[in-house]
Design a protein around this nucleic acid. Structure first.
Length: 514
RNA sequence: GGCCCCAUCGUCUAGUGGCCUAGGACACCGGCCUCUCACGCCGGUAACAGGGGUUCGAGUCCCCUUGGGGUCACCA
């Protein structure tokens, strides 16, 4: 396939490029290591890769980098896949498991060894740790000192024969000057050859290491663009050497800024816990696309004032060149009672919650109601219109999908909680309501029609007859009927809850005074 | 510590030498609306890290300082 495309390009490349009939295929990858759940930094990296793949009509490969068997777990793999699926970040190939390609990795190592790009190193970890410590104490540079770099063939075979374990190190070319690449977001990045240590590519137990595996897999998977965090920048320089030694074409690199916490520390699962886990947002009632929309803005902007994007709009607007260079801060303050996560994330979620089509919102709310045993099959059937109307009525005050089952409980069940604050303020303060509200219930039951106009008229009438401001009746009623201090227009609520239940609830008012 | 990257309101950001009296969003504060609370609408507070250059002119280019981050594993 690749050969065919290359053949076509070579054959008639200039004219085809100019007319744009054939664009080179773009292939991207998201290669998480399954050592924990998917966190928002990883999700953002995946998002950027996905967006670029979509934008260029390319392919996104999901590759699980599980070569560190001690730390990789099945739950973690599942968690990552669930997280991506929930976010709607789809991949076109994979998941591949890096551990299944160890033959490729070993072959690459053998080749490097055979071609003189790598050598066996018999230094023990202890020796190296010591040297590093001394260098650190003397404030000198602490790279590998090249002890085994020029061992003779005899020395190597005698050490091997003696059963001394060895690792394989890459032999960084002795060259003057610099090696570098043009980063799509950072520009030209260079490093002197002499700054680069001879890094280990295969462990003494013959397990190839990340730098090699990653490059080998990217070559095999024909990856053309690598979008990853800036923490990989120094790896990139070393990997460039690997591409060269393996005589493979070097992909484009785009190093995206890291996301830091409010103290400017790199966010991590270990130090931040579940707040940085994608799972957390699912559990807290986030709309998947809203989280994507928030995440994409953490380090990228379209260049104009737009901040809310549909999937297609975002794919259209997204470019590597507009990714920021500087780290962004995930603005989460632990223990803030008002904001359980970054306020902007919540604001974007709220935006979607109240502007998206009810038909799209409804399934998410339905899932939540099912989980809380509040779902009635009729909501999807002959009560669907009622269900949609009710969501439309109550959603503007909500922050997450979960609020529909908590703050919105009174619309779907009779066992809602009467909150203390409105109870004191709107009910207990007016003992007369224990009588007037049941009285209003009688009028509602007897009235010819149960419309917003009529219920309001009757409520105002009763208030007037007892010399009360209408607000007292209305808010008392709100407390009894919904249990809450605030909500939609009271008479809309009445219609949503229905005459029968309203009457029932109002009649129980005296119980609240005990 | 070496090497590398970065630096505009509290946060996310626009800004690619004159359109900047630095714009938008979130958050915050005020107002309108109102049966409550939201939504919505209107308005407000709030930033170019510091110092040198270059230039007629610098948030924008260069240098230095400072600050922050990354990385220096037989982890990925």
């Amino acid at each position: 396939m690749l050969i065919t495309i290359r053949h076509l390009l070579n054959k008639n490349s200039s004219s085809r490029y100019q007319t744009g009939f054939i664009m080179p295929e773009t292939r991207l990858r998201f290669p998480p290591s399954p050592t924990g759940y998917l966190h928002i930094g990883g999700a953002r990296t995946a998002l950027y890769n996905w967006l670029y793949a979509k934008k260029t009509g390319g392919t996104l490969v999901l590759r699980i980098e599980d070569t560190d068997v001690d730390r990789s777990t099945r739950e973690s793999i599942d968690g990552i896949i669930d997280g991506l699926t929930w976010l709607g970040i789809s991949w076109d190939e994979g998941p591949y498991f890096q551990s299944e390609f160890s033959d490729d990795h070993r072959a690459a190592a053998e080749r490097l060894l055979a071609e003189g790009h790598a050598y066996r190193c018999f230094c023990t970890k202890e020796e190296l740790d010591n040297k590093r410590e001394i260098a650190l104490a003397e404030k000198k540079q602490f790279g590998y000192d090249g002890t085994c770099r020029n061992l003779t063939a005899e020395e190597i075979s005698s050490k091997t024969a003696a059963g001394i374990p060895s690792v394989i190190r890459f032999k960084v070319p002795e060259r003057e000057g610099k090696i570098g690449y043009d980063d799509k977001v950072l520009g030209r990045i260079e490093s002197s050859y002499r700054e680069i240590d001879d890094f280990v590519i295969v462990r003494s137990n013959s397990q190839p290491l990340y730098l090699l595996c990653n490059v080998t897999d990217d070559i095999r998977d024909r990856i053309t663009h690598i979008i990853r965090g800036q923490d990989h920048m120094t790896n990139t320089i070393k990997q460039l050497l690997l591409y060269e030694a393996l005589s493979a074409p070097v992909p484009e690199f785009a190093h995206i800024p890291l996301t830091l916490d409010v103290k400017k520390a790199k966010i991590s699962k270990r130090s931040h816990g579940e707040i940085v886990a994608v799972q957390f947002y699912r559990d807290h009632g986030f709309i998947p696309w809203a989280l994507n929309n928030f995440l994409v803005l953490l380090g990228w902007s379209p260049g104009d004032d737009r901040e809310i994007f549909s999937r297609d709009e975002l794919i259209e607007a997204f470019t590597l060149e507009r990714i920021n260079r500087s780290a962004s801060i995930f603005n989460y303050k632990k223990g803030d009672p008002k904001f359980f996560t970054d306020p902007k994330a919540i604001a974007i979620n709220e935006h979607y919650l109240r502007t998206m089509a009810i038909e799209e919102l409804a399934p998410m709310v339905a899932d939540e109601l099912r989980a809380e045993a509040l779902w009635d099959e009729a909501y999807g059937d002959d009560k669907q219109q009622w269900f949609f109307n009710t969501l439309g009525l109550i959603r503007s005050r909500f922050h997450t999908i979960n609020d529909f089952s908590s703050m919105g409980r009174a619309y779907f069940a009779d066992d809602y909680v009467i909150e203390q604050k409105p109870l004191n303020k709107n009910l207990l303060k007016f003992p007369e309501l224990a009588q007037w509200l049941p009285e209003l219930a009688d009028r509602y039951e007897a009235s010819e029609e149960f419309s917003a106009e009529e219920t309001e008229r009757l409520a105002r009438e009763i208030a007037e007859s007892h010399g009360l401001p209408p607000g007292v009746i209305i808010n008392g009623m709100r407390t009894v009927v919904t249990g809450q201090l605030a909500g939609p227009s009271m008479f809309d609520i009445l219609l949503a809850i229905g005459r029968e239940r309203v009457v029932q609830r109002l009649r129980k008012t005296p119980e609240l005074y005990s």
